[in-house]
Amino acid sequence: MAPVIEAKGLDLVFQTADGPVHALKDVNLTVGKGEFVSFIGPSGCGKTTFLRCVAALEHPTGGTLTVNGMTPDQARQARAYGYVFQAAGLYPWRTIAGNIRLPLEIMGFSKAEQAERVERVLELVELAGFGKKFPWQLSGGMQQRASIARALAFDADILLMDEPFGALDEIVRDRLNEELLKLWARTEKTIGFVTHSIPEAVYLSTKIVVMSPRPGRITDIIDSPLPKERPLDIRDSREFIEIAHRVREGLRAGHGDEV
């Protein structure tokens, strides 16, 4: 099967006032359809930058990157992905339904279809009945769910998530992780997920990409042996702890050459 995301020898150098910064160096990665890929690593390792390259928000300076077999720019034109940012970023002057309608309005869906899609994705993120509320009436976790619904509304195959739960407390985070897995199983999307948290990465992913900084590069790619069905207490299992250990080793190795 053709890969959904394929990066070969990807390089990205930012020209800054302090000289060039090597944000990504020789990144090679293949993501298949329906995979849940986490990117983990310390700040400056390029995990967010890589996601932004996939979304055509940054443009690589070397190597090749294809999304659904197209260039990232073409893929964006073809509405290949939905992007979830660290903050929910809902417009305070729009209701929850109005916020989810935003991409649909821009993409030119009919009024009837907008309404139908809003209902559907609200149900998908378990916010049915909250469409008429305003963002300030919802908790942080619910706001982030609404922003996920917004990214799902136009049926992109790929969901790119940049530390979406980073600003939430651990209890809310656990619940949203569980819900995200259910959502992923139901929608069969390909998900790219940036995180700082080792348990989060191991719990969610079928593939964990461990990265390290200066220059931003991949140090390890781990295919998770965990089953697709994952209750929260899988985190106490031996396999889970072993994978978490390997991720930690990978992160440490990445730091090794500068300490």
């Binding site: 979304a55 928000l57 964006r76 992007y83 940012f85 660290q86 002057w93 991409p103 821009i106 993409m107």
Partner: peptide
């Protein structure tokens, strides 16, 4: 920047960015 990036991911035009985000 995040708000502007979000609209970029929808391929929003300058007019849409103005009307839906900047003006409000």
């Amino acid at each position: 920047a995040m708000q502007l990036d979000l609209l970029k991911t929808y391929n929003a035009t300058g007019g849409e960015v103005f009307g839906k985000l900047r003006l409000p």
